[in-house]
Design a protein around this nucleic acid. Sequence first.
DNA 1: TGTTGTGAAAACCTTCACAGCG
DNA 2: CGCTGTGAAGGTTTTCACAACA
Lengths: 254, 254
Amino acid sequence: MTVDGGAPRPVAGGSPTTPGAPRRPAARVPEATVGRLAVYLRALTEMLAQGVPTVSSDVLAAAAGVNAAKLRKDLSHIGSSGVRGVGYDVSRLTAQVETVLGLTHENAVALVGVGNLGHALAGYGGFAARGFGVSALFDVDPALVGTVIAGVEVQDVAEIPDVCRERGVTIGVVATPAPAAQKVCDALVGAGVRSILNFAPAVLSVPDGVEVRKVDLAVEMQILAFHVSRRHVGASGATGTDPVADDATGKVFG
Amino acid sequence: MTVDGGAPRPVAGGSPTTPGAPRRPAARVPEATVGRLAVYLRALTEMLAQGVPTVSSDVLAAAAGVNAAKLRKDLSHIGSSGVRGVGYDVSRLTAQVETVLGLTHENAVALVGVGNLGHALAGYGGFAARGFGVSALFDVDPALVGTVIAGVEVQDVAEIPDVCRERGVTIGVVATPAPAAQKVCDALVGAGVRSILNFAPAVLSVPDGVEVRKVDLAVEMQILAFHVSRRHVGASGATGTDPVADDATGKVFG
DNA sequence: TGTTGTGAAAACCTTCACAGCG
DNA sequence: CGCTGTGAAGGTTTTCACAACA
């Protein structure tokens, strides 16, 4: 409780404020900011297509669905260069955000699990559109191996190491059933993939240095369900009484 | 027009002392906690199925991929009742989490946009399996209207108001192309839907009191791309034979 | 003028460390 | 003993408000 020095975990100090520095392109971009940069980029791209030359933080923030102060703070983290009294040059800012996000080079994507969801993902515009080419597809099902989806042939999961290395895959997408997810993940990591997007309802264990992001349908639905039941301001209705009183059979989940 | 995500919701005069109720099951659950409760629930369900009677915060946390202290803090927010020296009763805790998440009653779901992705979602286990019945499907495409997917007939989007009201839809899923998303969203909100899961790459404007969650493939990919480009630390050789180092992490259960 | 960029404050979330209890 | 529950510390993110400036 007393301060007593505390754990000597060295804060990644870096360089404190550098007052007269000319320009620092990107020092340390907070995670929360990274997630929003992609949203800004979408709005910027649209504006660019429409020929809008400059945009103010107010307008861009509205288009992205965030607060203007937050947007400015975000841009300050990537070393933004707006013009006071005018705003941001759309094309310049677009290029800047793309650079920070690492979109200036192609990212080869491998998608594992070409079932119900995976099949849809392979054809989804979201992938191919923005410089993410689906370079490889994998599945265990012999009936699927050999078929061609979105112009890419499905291969056996046993090929993951070889094919991923050969094609320089940097991003892996796991769209398998939960029980297979960890094994597939291990194979991807073994092939040098260090960024994984996981659609399977399972927790993936990865070594340090591998980034995993999770898209979990059930979790999203349950979060919404929470808010639905919150809206019933009947006060003592749902949550007021002992939840475990008699209905403890756990039947709600199939 | 600015939707501005963060309405500073002042704590609506919560009655601090409720003399009649001896226990306070859930006061105010932080958003971050809600998102994790769903993950805990999945692990708990599996343990329940395996007949595990009790579980410690350590083990449950490992299964959910979080820190044990965080798990305990989360559970403290929902009025947890573990037993010191023993752990948590799995079936009791399961029921408690389900109650907090509002899973004790069915949630009727309407899915709009039965194209590539929407079609897959309609059949995805994540929906139907866990108490979220897909009660209605909608699309604009006349070729799709009238077809039956996963046992539900696709109806025209013009029917959204009537059908959603009639079937008591509480959660709407938007899986349309971006340009149609806002209109669809408005229709859902007009039909009384106050929780929306948005798969379209568009920012949705909703009135106060409506909860929108977004699943954005492109954003996820770009976040990963950011980390890929950031990972230029030593030896990324293609022939590097990176030992995957499969330690004994992984599955705590089944 | 109108707008950016940024300290500082506030809110939120995570982690630590240990008292308290079975 | 082992484990939970929690105050307090530490870290991150959001918001505010305004000086600086083309």
